[in-house]
Every structure is written in structure tokens, then in C-alpha cells.
Computed example of a mutant assay.
Amino acid sequence: MRFAVISDVHGNAMALDAVLADIAGQGVDATLCLGDHVSGPLDPAGAAERLMGLDGPVIRGNHDRWLAQGRRDDRDLDPTDQFARRQLSATQHAWLAALPATSVFENEIFLCHGTPASDNVAWLDDWYYDRKTTLPSEQAVTAPAEGIDYPVMLCGHTHIARSVRLRDGRMVVNPGAVGLQLVHGSPDARYAVIERRDGKWRTSLRVVEYDHHAAAQQAVDNGFLPWKQALATGWADASGLF
């Protein structure tokens, strides 16, 4: 069993195309997607079109939930989400609204966006402080996995690629972001390949080059200059983007 795992496309169809092309050469059985699909000032409808054709489970992220509801938890949608919402067709809106918060695949792989209990809480990395991100304590990482009786647990949300193996052997994997690199120091797209071999699950965290300068220019052309640095360099944090 061999699967690709993608997350946090954020409307970046150029990055998604590059990742899907790389996945095509990996011999995977399906591609799993962990949410935050369209919220970005690039090509939300194009990204949705591609993701709707995937052959594996797709769940929602916090931005997908907000877009479907028409507002964030505590306020109206910000300009980036408003832009994405305007670009989607009625069919794409319906698809987004119908996505589940979590899923289980092949009775072995648990999918969530943030943590099993929340799509807006970070699991494997603390949020960014002064452009730095750190692995939380062992207790903080282990606690959300309590009661999740699957050998592989997948999450996204932080845009930071990381694979952690708990002491009981269960694995927690964040594939990183396809469409928006934050505090990575690289603009290249990220995803993961997970594989069960000899009865044990293994992770490969992959980095894919794409025309990030064209993506940055697309955001600028759509009126979102603050996205330029993040897309073009991968050094920025999330401040001012959403």
C-alpha cells in the first residue's frame, strides 16, 4: 500500500499541477487530501477542479469550513477568503460544503486537518513566533492521538512538513503545504508519500520545484501584494496573508 498525501493547496493551481505530476511518477494507489484547498488569491476554481478529480479521500480545513459558512468563527471572511469564495462555481461550493471534517481510509489511516478534535488547532508544530516554529512537547503531541486507534494519523494546517512516530508505534504525519510555504526558507511545494512495507508504515517527505515566481505574480495581479514574499521566497510567516 502506497499513498500520496497533500494539504494546504490554498488555491495555488500551479503548485498543485507540479505536485500531481510528481505524484504520477511515484506509483501510488491513491492521493489523500487534508484541507484548505482554495483559500488563496491565485486560482481557487482551478485548484478545486483538480482536487475534485482525486482518487482518494478529501477532507475540509478551517478555511474550507469558513468559506462554506460564509464567515469565520468570530468575524466576517477576510479579503483572501472573500476572493476565493467569489471564484468558485455553484458545483464547487456544493463540493466544499459537503466535505467531512475527518475521514478514515483503508481502516488504517486517519485524516484530519488540524487535530482530530479541531480543524483550527496546530498538532505537530507550535505556531510561528518570530518566524520560528518548534515541535511541541511529547505530551502535547501525544494527547490529541488518544483514542485514535489507527497506525497512521495525518494532519496539515501548519504548512510545516514533519513525521513523528509515537512510542506505541503510531505515526503522525504532516505533509507540509502544496501551495504556500511559511518559514521554510524555500518556496518549493511539499507533499508526502506514505507506504506500508513489511508490515510497517514509512514516510517520505517530498519537495517539488515549480514556477513560484509566476504564482507570486498571479497573487499580485489579483491585488494581493502581501502574498508575493511568501510565495516567492518561503521565508515569510502568515502575518497579513489571511
Rank of each mutant, 00 (worst) to 15 (best):
L88Q: 13
G11C: 06
R75Y: 04
A214N: 09
I59G: 00
V38F: 06
A47K: 00
E106Q: 12
A21P: 13
R60C: 04
P144T: 06
A68M: 09
T31C: 07
N174L: 05
R85C: 14
R2Q: 06
L231Y: 00
M153N: 02
A232M: 04
A97N: 03
L51E: 01
S89N: 11
D149N: 06
G56W: 03
S186L: 10
L88R: 15
H37F: 06
A15E: 03
E195R: 04
H213Y: 12
W66E: 14
G56P: 15
D17N: 13
G114M: 08
D22R: 15
A84L: 10
S103L: 08
V208G: 12
G46F: 01
C112R: 01
V104T: 05
A21K: 14
L32Q: 00
L166Q: 10
A4S: 14
S7H: 05
F224H: 12
P116S: 02
E106D: 10
V173T: 08
A24R: 11
V121I: 14
S137C: 02
F105G: 01
G156A: 07
I148P: 03
G234Q: 09
D198Y: 06
R162Q: 08
S103T: 07
H157M: 08
R196W: 02
L166C: 04
V9I: 13
W227N: 08
L180V: 00
R85T: 15
H213F: 12
P136T: 04
G223R: 06
L88S: 05
A236N: 13
C155P: 01
I109D: 00
A215I: 05
W123H: 12
H93F: 15
P44T: 14
G70F: 04
V183S: 02
L231Q: 09
